[in-house]
Design a protein around this nucleic acid. Structure first.
Length: 550
RNA sequence: GGCCCUAUCGUCAAGCGGUUAAGACACCGCCCUCUCAAGGCGGGUUCCCGAGUUCGAAUCUCGGUGGGGUCACCA
């Protein structure tokens, strides 16, 4: 009579290492008290999702502030969905946000002593552990085909029984070892399942770092742990990897809550202490009045690359996500004007429990704050680097005359309340077009919005007078007094009270006069500080624009 | 459908048995003002519903309801 050991040897003839060997190869980490080991473990199946960045940020922050270790692990066990190169892209994009792992998978080779950090390269580790389980009768080969499984499910559905491969429905669970061996020798394909002894009517509880004590039905499903292709399923890989990588806290999306009992079951079967868990809320989006997860297909903002392409500063996005992560964060940013994200003390207790709706307005607000607090010396180089890939026009402008762009970006930057014009780098181009003659031409061609109450000839003569007598190179006060003189000379009221008392006595007020100049120079009723605009444009262009406005 | 998570302004949210129920974004109004941006001031039937516990409930309990998730050889 054959026993489990024979079965295990038949299934894994090449495995000579034991679980004990693995324990020795991956010893407990020597870290200070309280240091946390976290990880970000994406599948290389496409671009970096906004929700993934959120998860990555939280894990990174938590490890860093505790003096611990942050790992990057590539979960590439789904060979069908794997997209070549996307793992490297993920790392690259995370790098844009300053989220760099201490150890893990790296395009040019793993870093760290707990690797490999790519699941497809950990095959033998999983097989070693599974061999151990088979030897103990805690895992078994299952020969069911897709059709067999389908039949079981159809029966369960028809009889309104809980679907799944468990208990009496686990067809191959109690095959004799002799039969198992015979069928394997016969070349029948199989997967390996974990033999659960859980009871669905019992509850397991665990303490979630965010949600507190959670009580969920015990797992009783004989889950697949090794797929037909020889690679493990997520459930098994998670337990094995996070055990041997000595992870202390697993932060992942809340969609994993229902399968946590499986993981707890597996940890316990292996005699290992489970990791702590933090199940993060998922970022949602309002769609026709319904909340739903940000969708890769439908929502451009689901892809982090979207924000990068649009030119949002990475810090702005990080700040927005941290604002979702911790309710006290925004208050902290206001109290700490020139804050550095790394100085903020993140905590799971301050995390809300349900998914936030993605709010582009709020993101833009934070981005304006971030860019508003910076000066041209940092904004322009960043904008240039961004524009090189994403905005030909802006790139050309910065390349042609970086100092000129810098002067524009710095308008009103040194005032008490600096301007906050730009939410992203793209707006530097779109909001400053009038500073460029080639862009000003089409604005002009589209027609200037001069106030209809002034007749053309009057506007023309007023602007001509301005062209002749505008003062340059002086401080704003002096310049403005000059404008007021010009306005008065042309029949405008310089005192608004007088104007209001007797409007018919004047052509308009100083505001009207300034508006005419503004439109002539910028083509718009809205523009930043006229004095700065004039100084940046320079006398020649100011004169030319005033003279040709109408 | 079973199970799980969750519920305070439009959005993000503070709140932890007694509060005039903070604050931020967005919106609206006013002020400042050469316009805009910024800034200042102000505004809006916000505690899902129903029972219960209690002198007293946004807060505790139970039951509904809504929203989300999950039930794969995907993660």
């Amino acid at each position: 009579m054959a026993d489990y050991k024979d079965l295990a040897n038949l299934m894994f003839p090449d495995i000579t290492e034991t679980v004990d060997d693995l324990e020795k190869r991956y010893p407990a980490r020597n870290l200070p008290e309280g240091a946390q080991v976290t990880r970000f473990a994406p599948s290389p199946t496409g671009f970096l999702h906004t929700g993934s960045l959120f998860t990555a940020l939280v894990g990174f922050k938590y490890a860093k502030q505790s003096g611990g270790v942050y790992m990057f692990r590539l979960e590439d066990t789904d060979t069908k969905r794997t997209i070549a190169g996307s793992g490297d892209e993920l790392i690259d994009q995370l790098g844009n946000f300053g989220i760099v792992a201490d150890e893990g998978y790296w395009p040019d080779g793993d870093r760290g002593a707990y690797g490999p950090y790519q699941q497809s390269k950990r095959r033998d580790i999983y097989r070693t552990v599974i061999k151990h389980l088979v030897e103990q009768g805690k895992a078994y080969p299952d020969f069911c085909t897709a059709e067999d499984l389908e039949k079981i499910r159809a029966y369960q559905e028809a009889n309104k029984i809980l679907p799944g491969y468990y208990g009496e429905f686990a067809r191959d669970r109690n095959l004799s070892v002799d039969e198992q061996i015979a069928r394997i020798n016969n070349g029948e394909p199989y997967v390996v399942r974990y033999k659960s002894h859980g009871d669905h009517n019992n509850k397991v509880s665990f303490v979630d770092a965010i949600r507190g004590k959670l009580d969920i039905a015990e797992n009783d499903v004989d889950v697949v742990i090794l797929k037909g292709d020889g690679l493990p399923t997520y459930h098994f890989a998670h337990v094995v990897d996070d055990h041997f990588m000595r992870t202390t806290l697993v932060s992942r999306g809340e969609e994993w809550i229902p399968s946590t009992p499986i993981h707890l079951d597996l940890f316990s079967a292996l005699g290992w202490e489970p990791t702590k868990y933090a199940h993060l809320p998922v970022i949602m989006k309002l769609d026709n009045g319904n909340k739903r997860k940000l969708s890769k297909r439908k929502d451009p903002e689901a892809a982090v690359s979207y924000f990068l392409q649009e030119g949002y500063p990475t810090k702005g996005l990080l700040v927005y996500l941290m604002n979702i992560a911790n309710s006290n964060f925004e208050e902290w940013t206001i109290a700490n004007k020139d804050f550095e994200l790394s100085h903020f003390q993140f905590s799971f207790e301050k995390m809300s429990l349900d998914g936030a709706l993605f709010d582009i307005d709020k993101l833009q607000y934070f981005c304006r704050e971030v860019l508003g607090a910076e000066h041209a010396d940092t904004i322009v180089p960043a904008a240039k680097a961004w524009a090189k890939e994403n905005n030909e026009k802006l790139y050309a402008k910065i390349s042609a005359d970086e100092a000129y762009v810098s002067r524009i970006v710095n308008i009103d930057k040194d005032k008490q309340n600096p301007r906050k014009d730009f939410a992203n780098y793209a707006e530097i181009e779109t909001k400053t077009r009038f500073f460029y003659d080639e862009d000003f031409a089409p604005i002009k061609a589209a027609g200037f919005p001069f106030n209809e109450k002034f007749d053309k000839e009057f506007v023309k003569s007023f602007l001509a007078d301005c062209a002749e007598n505008m003062i340059y190179g002086v401080d704003e006060m002096t310049w403005w007094n000059g404008v007021k003189d010009l306005a008065a000379k042309n029949g405008f009221a310089t005192n608004n009270k007088e104007y209001k008392a007797n409007p018919t006595a004047f052509k308009g007020n100083t505001g009207d006069a300034a508006e005419l100049i503004r439109i002539a120079l910028t083509g718009s009723k809205m523009a930043p500080n006229l004095h700065e605009v004039i100084e940046i444009l320079g006398k020649d262009r100011v004169v030319a624009r005033l003279l040709s406005a109408i």
